[in-house]
């Protein structure tokens, strides 16, 4: 990609045209970042991989470290709690994210017009995205308390019976999902709204003058043009949802029982509850491989260096 024979007009050649490329070495500029990345990213990953091949107790008092090869991975396959956490994690992703995308798209389409207070609405609606994840988890836990929680007060006023939401496996799982939808659909909205604003108005107006119904315009014009943005939002949300931890941890601590022990929560429990660092590392490597697969897809499809350079810091 950095061949000097590229014409300067192509996006990749632009750097060559702008930079003084060739003179001097980039190494002194890259070295500090590379050192940090090596110390806190690459080395821990390699270390995790090594530990995942050992029966490795958390503290020295837990016995000796024994090399076991792939036995930890085999043990995971046989571990029902592992499959439970995977099932909960996938359910979380498959329920929460489509709803977030739908809500975000609907709101983007509806709010994409001038009306009084539109700007304020579009700004305020993003606040939950910036709510500290921990505070979000705590606040939802608070609202779902029996007797004094906001939701129960509301239901009691309607004459409904009182429910200990977070004490019930299904309700607790649903609450974790609702919390995530509440917090993250505005994030999808923000991306899709920007994507929608990028569609030239004459394209939309032409379709409108042609007399196309709203649904036809949506399916034939808007969605195809929005597809790259929707895909970006989807991939970003999946990568983010794969690693969800803090909100759920403070909201339910994985309970009741194992009802909300999503993948990261079970990884955490393996290391700091069961003191089995080897098993925990095997789970960490498993999650890492999946996350890298999604991240590479996203980066290759939608975040190429050329596109980034084209933005030119304008936004």
């Amino acid at each position: 990609m950095t061949s000097s024979r590229r014409p300067a007009t192509s996006p990749a050649g632009r750097v060559a045209a702008r930079g003084t490329g060739g003179r001097g070495s980039p190494v002194p500029f890259l070295l500090p970042a590379l050192l940090i990345v090596f110390a806190v990213l690459i080395f821990p990953i390699v270390f995790s991989f090594v530990v995942s091949m050992f029966d490795w107790p958390l503290s020295a008092g837990g016995g000796a470290r024994v090399f076991v090869g792939v036995d930890n991975y085999k043990a995971l396959v046989r571990d029902l709690e592992f499959w439970n956490s995977l099932k909960l994690q996938l359910g979380f992703i498959f329920i929460a994210i489509p709803l977030e995308i739908l809500l975000g798209l609907a709101a983007a389409l509806l709010l994409n017009r001038e009306f009084q207070g539109g700007k304020v609405v579009r700004a305020l609606i993003l606040l939950p995205v910036f709510f500290l994840p921990v505070v979000s988890g705590m606040t939802w836990r608070f609202m779902l308390q029996p007797r004094y929680g906001a939701l129960n007060n509301f239901l009691l006023a309607l004459g409904a019976p009182e429910i200990t939401w977070l004490g019930h496996p299904t309700f607790a799982y649903a609450a974790v999902i609702v919390q995530d939808i509440w917090r993250m659909w505005p994030f999808v909205f923000m991306l899709l709204y920007a994507g929608l604003a990028g569609i030239p108005t004459d394209v939309l107006e032409a379709a409108e003058i042609d007399g196309a119904t709203f649904w036809k315009r949506l399916l034939r014009v808007i969605l195809p043009l929005m597809y790259p943005t929707i895909l970006t939002a989807l991939l970003l949300r999946i990568i983010d949802a794969l690693r969800i931890f803090s909100e759920v941890y403070v909201m339910t601590e994985g309970g009741p029982g194992m009802a909300t022990t999503l993948f990261s929560l079970y990884t955490h429990r393996q290391a700091f509850g069961y003191m089995k660092v080897g098993m925990s590392s095997a789970m960490a490597i498993f999650l890492l491989v999946i996350s890298i697969a999604f991240a590479v897809t996203l980066v290759r499809k939608n975040m190429s260096l050329e596109r980034l350079e084209d933005q030119g810091g304008s936004r």
């Binding site: 750097v15 890492l288 260096l305 980034l308």
Partner: peptide, 25 residues
């Protein structure tokens, strides 16, 4: 601002690094 081999690969790896789950590390 420099041309060097592996420039793209390096830029991409930094973005992928940002998306790694903290639980894995």
């Amino acid at each position: 601002r420099f041309k060097f081999r592996g420039r793209n690969a390096l830029a991409y790896s930094f973005l992928v690094f940002r998306m790694l789950p903290q639980m894995s590390l």
